[in-house]
């Protein structure tokens, strides 16, 4: 049994929506609702979801960039609130992140060398030659020239910037990297380069990945386990192969059908699904979130939210009907 690096217990985050004019406060929205996940050393976990699924909020919660409304995030089994200063620094050294937009990820007024060195300087407190050498090392590791350190972000292309972001995440030799849509803003030909690089690095360094994406295919390429999120809830979770070749939840089935190649004139499956799109849930336990779009819902689905149950070892689903 591998050690859990990060785990969550009933993790929930609500936001208050400010809509319309000055005082019209709307009820809270559950961005992340009752999430229990675990990321162990060397493991790759994919989080799949569309816009509004709460996957990015989940990433921010795990990185301690947001405080949960309720529930706990644990680092090596200890609740985050109980960590002392040294342990918090340890957490910052252990868990790094790469975000979607390579343009906003790099501070425009800093040289690449300084950007990549930041985790070493800040969390490790290192200076001088050691830092220089490590920066050169990780830049080469991600396929960039050592001289890139002298450049500014605007002198690089999108693909090169995303390599810099990965180099920076690697600099302090972390155990885990949270990757939030790291390839979705890149062109197809560059995307393949970066996906290959990520897979290579994971194997070489025995890294744990929390890979967040809307794209089932790249999740399948990179991850051993996947969790599918819909409007803040994890509706299906299990080994990548099992979930993608035999999806149980109707939403996972829909996602899969949408991602499979199709030819003109060939009928799609989407007609059994209603055109309605995801609507934000404003109450927590008021039926299944997917019921309004589901082709096989019944009265129970509208009344109570389905609980997570294990159908096969390690394969969980939250659905009344399957």
């Amino acid at each position: 049994m591998s050690r859990a690096l990060i785990s969550t217990e009933r993790l929930t985050k609500t936001f208050t929506r400010h809509g319309g004019f000055v005082f019209s406060r709307q009820p809270s929205v559950y961005a992340v609702s009752d999430i229990n996940i675990q990321l162990s050393e060397g493991e790759t976990l994919g989080i799949v979801g569309e816009s509004g699924s709460g996957k990015t909020t989940l990433a921010r919660l795990l990185l301690q960039l947001e405080k949960p409304t309720s529930g706990i995030v644990r680092f090596r089994g200890r609740a985050f609130g109980e960590l002392n200063g040294r342990e918090v620094r340890e957490f910052r050294n252990t868990v790094q992140a790469v975000f979607q937009d390579p343009y906003s990820s790099l501070s425009p007024r800093m040289r690449i060398g300084e950007i990549v060195a930041e985790p070493l300087v800040v969390a490790r407190g290192l200076r001088g030659q050691i830092v220089q050498r490590r920066v050169g090392q990780v830049l080469e590791q991600v396929g960039l020239k050592v001289s890139t350190a002298e450049l500014y972000p605007h002198e690089l292309s999108g693909g090169q910037r995303q390599r810099v972001a990965i180099a920076r995440a690697l600099a302090a030799a972390p155990k885990a990297i949270v990757l939030d849509e790291p390839v979705s803003s890149l062109d197809v030909s560059i995307r393949a380069q970066v996906l290959n690089l990520l897979r290579q690095l994971q194997r070489d360094e025995q890294l744990a990945y929390l890979f967040i994406s809307h794209d089932l295919s790249s999740v399948r390429y990179l991850c051993q386990r996947i969790a599918v999120m819909y409007l803040g809830r994890a509706i299906e979770e299990g080994p990548a192969d099992a979930v993608l070749s035999g999806p149980l939840h109707p939403y996972t089935q829909l996602l899969r059908a949408a991602a499979l190649p199709r030819w003109k004139g060939q009928p799609g499956v989407q007609h059994s699904y209603r055109a309605a799109e995801a609507t934000l849930p404003s109450k927590a336990n008021d039926g299944c979130n997917f019921a309004p779009r589901c082709p096989q819902f019944n009265a129970t689905c509208l009344r109570s939210a389905p609980l997570r149950r294990e159908t096969r070892p390690g394969h969980f689903v939250a659905c009344h009907e399957c």
Partner: peptide
Amino acid sequence: AAPRLDEAMESLESIPGE
């Protein structure tokens, strides 16, 4: 270059350069 859903792939054929 794009990963596929219907088959497990060992590595993607990427286009070098920009």
